[in-house]
Nucleic acid binder design. Structure first.
Length: 405
DNA sequence: TCTGGGGTCCTAGGACCC
DNA sequence: TCTGGGGTCCTAGGACCC
């Protein structure tokens, strides 16, 4: 059946929220960044973008692009709160709302569109309500599936509203470079160009066999995408898919070489991962460690356990065993710990049972003190405080396992 | 004063088993 | 008088997304 999907995408979300809460920032080039020294631009306001300020730039680069740039340290609570309120608006139009990231949501309005005078009218109303309630602009893309809705938004931002109707899809795609599509990144686009494929039209006409032999199963999907086909459903939070991994990583305040320092960070990271797993009722059978050297060379190592765990100390122990044999070739810049091969722990270990949570937290704290002496805990706590000033990740969710504090 | 952090999915090679 | 062969599990790496 033909569907109608909306993508609501906040324009420069974090920066817009900051401009709204502080009128002095309005109309000015603003960059939202983390608080630490080694941080990057998370979101630039459109004023800042006009100077060339881009997501991912470090402070130095951003200031070079725009000397009068106003840097604001991100405040995750504000964005999370706004995101939660935005969802309430969406739910007035359909129960099928997928909060894709903190600033993007898919709405499947198939079936409810006629109640509100059609998809464009819904898009218009949502934009208006967001502007009125929060004073920020949103772009709404509408299409017969998520891929096309996303494209419609990308092609019309900022403050856009565009409906690509089913019969318009092939025309819109004909001359579009494949890299503009959601899911085709720079590397894939370069591969395609090397094959002489420069537009979605050309990609759609490339024989499946050729794409298949070159890219495997991905090749078939590429062709489907170039034809504007996408069957993936809008998944509301209540039926959200299984979580695959839980992880934490951090760029260290300074590069380190000593194994004992590395291990102390591994402990903090293990604890954050385990805490989040326990809180949301997951345990993992695979423990992974990622290391980034000063030179930015990055690699990961993992180990599979016989039983899943959500225990801080077990994860820590395994992570240590993984790291210990490594002969470091350079100082370490970033460390990460994650667990995967997840299972759901039993429902009885109730998700939001505050008492249990607190008890387990205490057990954790006790455990650390018992095993490593309170010195470890104090040190860990101090470092944790320091690292909390890090960058806000747009992938953070307002609720669920992937909400990280 | 270079270069964040949270994820998902896919591939490829080797171990191991029958 | 070389090299089966299919299936699964595990590990490492990479592309892509917000």
């Amino acid at each position: 059946m033909e569907r109608t999907i909306l993508l609501v995408d906040m324009d420069a979300f974090f920066a817009s929220v900051e401009q709204q809460s502080n009128p002095a920032l309005r109309g000015k080039p603003v960059a939202v960044m983390g608080g630490g020294k080694r941080t990057v631009v998370t979101t630039a306001s459109y004023e800042a973008r006009s100077f060339g300020v881009r997501t991912g730039m470090n402070l130095h680069e951003a200031r070079q692009a725009c000397p009068e740039l106003i840097v604001v340290v991100g405040n995750n609570d504000k964005y999370t709160h706004t995101c939660t309120e935005l969802k309430k608006i969406y739910l007035r139009y359909t129960p099928l709302v997928e909060i894709y990231s903190i600033d993007e949501a898919f709405l499947d309005v198939t079936g409810s569109e006629h109640l509100f005078g059609g998809p464009l009218e819904i898009g218009q109303r949502i934009k208006r309500e967001i502007r009125k309630r929060f004073g920020i602009n949103a772009t709404v893309g509408i299409g017969p599936n998520k891929l096309i809705a996303k494209l419609a938004a990308d092609l019309s931002k900022p403050d856009g509203l565009r409906w690509i109707r089913p019969h318009e899809v092939s025309e819109v795609l004909e001359d579009l470079p494949p890299g503009e599509l959601w899911g085709i990144g720079p590397r894939m686009a370069a591969h395609l160009r090397a094959m002489g494929i420069n537009t979605c039209g050309e990609l759609a006409r490339t024989p499946t066999g050729i794409l298949r032999s070159r890219f495997g199963i991905t090749g078939e999907r590429l062709k489907m995408m170039a034809m504007g086909r996408d069957e993936t459903p809008v998944i509301s939070d209540s039926e959200t898919g299984e979580v695959r991994s839980i992880g934490h990583s951090m760029t260290l305040p300074r590069d380190i070489y000593s194994m004992s320092e590395i291990e102390s960070y591994i402990l903090i990271l293990s604890d954050r991962v385990a805490f989040r797993a326990r809180r949301y009722g997951y345990a993992g059978r695979t423990v992974s460690v990622v290391i980034r050297y000063k030179s930015f060379e990055t690699f990961s190592l993992q180990r599979k356990l016989t039983v899943p765990t959500d225990d801080t100390h077990l994860i820590y122990r395994v992570a240590k065993e993984i790291v210990r044999p490594i002969r470091l070739r350079e100082p370490v810049r970033l460390l990460g710990v994650s667990i995967s091969s997840l299972i759901k722990t039993t429902a009885q270990q109730c998700l939001f049972d505050e008492q249990k949570k607190r008890r387990r937290l205490l057990e954790t704290v006790d455990g650390i003190n018992l095993r490593y002496g309170s010195y470890s805990l104090l040190w860990a706590a101090a470092l944790q405080a320091e690292s909390h000033k890090g960058v806000i990740s747009p992938a953070w969710r307002p609720e669920g396992v992937h909400k990280t504090l």
